[in-house]
Amino acid sequence: MFPRKFDYVAPSSLDETVDALKGAGFAKVMSGGMSLLPLMKLRLVSPELVVDIGRIPGLDQISEEGDMLTIGALVRHYQTAGSEKVPAALAAAAAYTGDVQVRNRGTTVGAVVHGDLAADQPAAVLALGGVIVVQGPNGVREIPATDFFVDTLTTAIEPDEVATAIKVPKGGSSAYDKLGRRGGHTDYAVAGAAAWVKKDNGNITECRVALTGVAGRPTLAEGTAEAMVGTDGSAGAIAEAASKAADGVSVLEDLYGSEEYKAHLATVYAKRALTLALNE
């Protein structure tokens, strides 16, 4: 209920943020705090320094640049969910995150960087082929989502770096669907899938499907994506491709699902997400 003591800074620029993180010991960057603060209150995470980026101007924008859409580090879930510019998979994932109050405060970048294995938006960013933009002492670098999610609550971001934005490519069609813990779209995902497809002349030319809640981190269902490419995207093709969703994925059991059940749900939600994407 009560976090341990920590030092607090609220820098007014990203450069100041990087300076604050430099040699700070155990520091955590906070944007909305929806993921970090509950862990701190339960004393499961007790940083020495909290760097609150909430006062840095200019990070709360969704902007388009060429083929890419940039979502700044202070864009709240409700903004992502409500923006017509945001690809459907990510908008739906943001809409299914937390609840109204959490969506009013929490940020899309924060949810992605937190790397919870059952969160919604990481899978969407992964399926969309997004990149995470981080800034550190050595400048800015872009980490592809495929390299970003390392393990449960562990990502490729370094302790002295701050995530400044997520970029996702525009184009193609996408969708996200999940089974929440109380059923429907509520709460964390028992399992869910985001799908992205590109079609040319009636045939699927590119496809990515990402799973959440199934493995220790958001994971690509590579077998499904490969099987989709070259097909016409018919219900039969989807069903066949989706049946491979859990192939090669190391499925984790939890209170809400056995390994067998989660592997099964991976195929169901790969199918549902692909179907939705192709009907977008």
Binding site: L179, V190, Y256, G257, S258, Y261, H264
Partner: peptide, 8 residues
């Protein structure tokens, strides 16, 4: 009647 039990 959680989803996993019903499915099982």
């Amino acid at each position: 009647l959680r989803s996993r039990r019903v499915w099982q």
